[in-house]
């Protein structure tokens, strides 16, 4: 039998190690990117309008979650083509390269959560055991959704080498269409409807409630996250089926 999990582990640790090997700031880049966009939006927004006291932590968490979402998809999409050299020479379960790319983004997010915790020391948050479970379920929903999407996009990317441009524009759109730096109630009603069609809206809202508003958690939130989680598993399943069906021909198109 193949050494499936050792292969996954090896890909993750090698790629993680290599990513910042030749850069001076190294692993710092992982936290600098979301922190920079946090700083910009925070400074502009607090100067434009008075914000509620929980705005800072809510914005920081929102940006970190959206960063997880877009990084997972961008890295997952290119994962097959960056492994082309190996794929053309050895037979191994191809999906491992996609899983490893998305998992690395999850690790990056975990590192970002350390920064979030550091912020939380000076800006007390409302947290509980149940809240953490709600939060973790939201993050795993993102993990399965992005893996499913990446499995699909990684195959498409082999054929359409400029797909990354389109995808990064769409991801940008998702960032603005998710209530990260604004509250959904601020929008006109018809816009609210559109925004609430975006699954990320619900995921970000629930994850925030888990870490920042744990005393307000209702059973309804768990129903909601349950539905989101099941949907994310469906997206994942469709991704796997598409991938399995198409991947055997992929070596010819590199």
């Amino acid at each position: 039998m193949r050494n499936y999990f050792e292969l996954l582990d090896q890909f993750i640790s090698t790629d993680f190690k290599l990513r910042y090997k030749n850069s001076y700031l190294g692993i710092l880049w992982i936290i600098l990117k979301p922190l920079a966009s946090f700083a910009v939006i925070y400074i502009i927004w607090t100067n434009l309008f008075p914000q509620s006291p929980d705005f800072k932590m809510s914005l920081l968490l929102g940006i970190m979650i959206m960063n997880l979402f877009s990084e997972s998809i961008m890295m997952g999409m290119t994962s097959l083509s960056t492994k082309a050299g190996i794929i053309l020479k050895v037979r191994f379960p191809r999906e491992v390269s996609v899983f490893s790319a998305v998992t690395i983004s999850l690790f990056d997010f975990a590192i970002n959560m350390i920064i979030f915790t550091a912020f939380a020391i000076w800006n007390p948050i409302d947290i509980s055991f149940i809240g953490i479970i709600l939060f973790i379920l939201s993050i795993f929903s993102i993990y399965f959704i992005t893996t499913g999407i990446s499995l699909f996009l990684s195959i498409m990317f082999i054929r359409l080498r400029d797909l990354n441009n389109l995808v990064s524009v769409v991801l940008q759109l998702f960032f603005w269409m998710t209530p990260v730096y604004y509250k959904i109630e601020m929008l006109p009603e018809n816009l609210q409807k559109i925004i609430s069609l975006n699954p990320m809206t619900h995921i970000v809202t629930l994850a925030r409630r888990g870490l920042l508003g744990a005393s307000n958690i209702a059973t309804d939130d768990f129903w909601q996250i349950g539905i989101v989680f099941v949907l994310s598993l469906i997206v994942f399943g469709i991704g796997v089926l598409f991938f399995k069906k198409r991947v055997y021909k992929i070596a010819e198109y590199f």
Binding site: N3, E6, V90
Partner: peptide, 10 residues
Amino acid sequence: LNGIILGMNK
């Protein structure tokens, strides 16, 4: 790295 890609275990 190479060994694991070739299917050996750690």
